[in-house]
Design a binder for these strands. Structure first.
Lengths: 332, 332
DNA sequence: CTGTTAGCGCCTTCAA
DNA sequence: TTGAAGGCGCTAACAG
């Protein structure tokens, strides 16, 4: 592979001249530049990014670490991030957090191969993030309860979202409302439960326990829980599932048992994934402003890169989207 | 930022010793190693990836370039790729192809920051790919008609998929079948049309022209086309949409006009995106084996990395998934 | 077992 | 306007 040196030799100039010429520096005469460009082309010269990064100590790249690339609702988040990054002439890459502690994420967090990182991946522990963050590697954490130097946080108000969802059901007249949680160790689920609690208490309604019904945030999990609920003596009046995937699993389980939604049981989900609009009945849910979250996160990252260090945590509101699955008498 | 040299100084050993110790090389005595590790910790030493990459001339990372990170059906593709990459102790990053010619993708294709690239992004032109590919940067192209040195191809048999879809409708008794295409310049759409043609010819049915109905591969596009079709004098018996997004748009348009599916018009899509299973009636479609495609692509990449260069193009079969939208008398 | 010595390919003063 | 030299941080012989 041709290096800048090869080009310099072939063109009978010094390496530095080639370097300047390649970047269009006006200090190189036009004719020289053109000749160098031609020779570079001929030799199939390609700059070596690693060498440049090493020298300049900047990569002009930020990395987004997600649990699972291509998950349904990361799309908007990434868009929000990319739009801002592109505007700043930065590149964005996404990496999955699989491999955990010694997996791939380490590469981006700990080995200075990018200028900044945005993390939305619960399985990366706080310790790693704190260790990674530093004056020249700001880290933005999404949906995580962490305060540390060079770490900045953006969150969606999950508690308020859970509150809104539950309150919506309560106002519709439902009282016996079950909460279906995600995995035990997820903060999101925890906070949504708190919102649920708060609303239920306001109406003095009887809450289900935090982990009475646990669905792993997956459709399959929701389906299983749905089967359990359906086979109990009495049905609840409504179910608040901590995410849409589970809600959809619930709907499937109920459907198979001939339980009608919302006539027999009302359902509310969380996340507003795309399918939630297409299932029948369409699912009432809580939308998280993912694009905004990405955009805000990226903006904070660039602010940090530019030297600010007193960036306050941001919390974005969630929004209730009412559809048919929770509206009494809609689909008889 | 502490460098390996700082650690060496602080520990009173040579740089190379630190390097060995850090990587757990047995040539370093255990006690020395421990001491070095401690000091590294204390100094908050973090290796510099760029320096290592530069030296070793390998990054142990492959990059997947997609049109749009997080698009609905990249998920499985990425999984397929990642599973193989992880098994080979490689990292996977994903990058969007926005920015086109001088955008971000160039960075990964042309600047030797990764060891291999998998491209599924029509907007990157062949020329760029050919230029990028080389003995030490194999490129796997997905769904693209390109043969070149160090470029290897994996495709899904779109033509056969289009054929299967159309034939399915024909066998169900439909004859007047419209084809709704994607954008004019997409190969996928083109090939699916060819499959449509072939099946229609076999049954001597009257085809619609390649671009009579054009929907841009989006739901909105499909919706618009649906409105047009609905407002024509006579409805077709069936519609084959070149992708599910458009098919869903069509369904919405028809629904608004009171046209029942499949009673009045049968519909078949392509891609088997997740929603296709949840719309009502559920959409008959053609599944592309995305996971396999990713997995095969990654395997080829590693084969190339290991020195093979005579890798034949692979074409994966598509699979028809029959659901309600095309089954006569199902949803009256 | 540990240290010395060369670069990897590029950018950046500093001189000419 | 161009060239020479040094070094970014790390690894990999090769010596000791």
């Amino acid at each position: 592979m041709a290096t800048i040196k090869d080009v310099a030799n072939a063109a009978n100039v010094a390496v530095s001249t080639v370097s300047l010429a390649l970047r269009g520096d006006p200090r190189v005469r036009e004719s020289t530049r053109r000749r160098i460009l031609e020779i570079a082309q001929e030799l199939q010269y390609r700059p070596n990014g690693a060498a440049r990064d090493l020298k300049t100590r900047r990569t002009e790249t930020i990395c987004v670490i997600l649990h699972d690339l291509g998950g349904p609702f990361y799309s908007e988040l990434l868009l929000g991030i990319q739009d801002v990054a592109t505007a700043n002439d930065y590149n964005t890459i996404a990496s999955a957090s699989i491999g955990g502690k010694n997996g791939s994420a380490v590469r981006w967090l700990l080995e200075r191969r990018v200028d900044g990182v945005i993390v939305l991946a619960p399985e990366i522990d706080n310790e790693t993030i704190i260790r990674a963050a530093g004056p020249d590697l700001p880290v933005i954490v999404l949906d995580r309860d962490l305060v540390a130097k060079h770490v900045y946080s953006v969150r969606v108000d999950n508690e308020q979202g859970g509150y809104k969802a539950t309150r919506h059901l309560l106002e519709a007249g439902y009282r016996d409302i079950i909460f279906v949680s995600g995995p035990a160790d997820t903060l999101d689920s925890e906070l949504r439960y708190r919102g649920y609690e708060m609303a239920m208490d306001e109406f003095s309604a009887k809450k289900s326990k935090r982990f009475d019904y646990m669905g792993k945030f997956t459709e399959e999990g929701g389906y299983t829980v749905g089967k359990v609920i359906a086979s109990q003596g009495t049905l609840p009046e409504a179910v608040f599932a901590a995410n849409d995937e589970m809600a959809i699993g619930l709907m499937r389980a109920f459907g198979e048992k001939g339980i009608q939604i919302p006539r027999d049981v009302a359902i509310v989900g969380f996340d507003n994934i795309r399918i939630s609009e297409y299932v029948r009945p369409a699912l009432t849910t809580v939308r998280q402003p993912m694009y905004d979250m990405g955009s805000v996160a990226a903006q904070m990252l660039f602010a940090a890169l530019a030297g600010s260090s007193d960036l306050n945590p941001v919390t974005l509101p969630a929004e209730l989207i009412v559809r048919q699955s929770s509206v009494r008498g809609m689909y008889v």
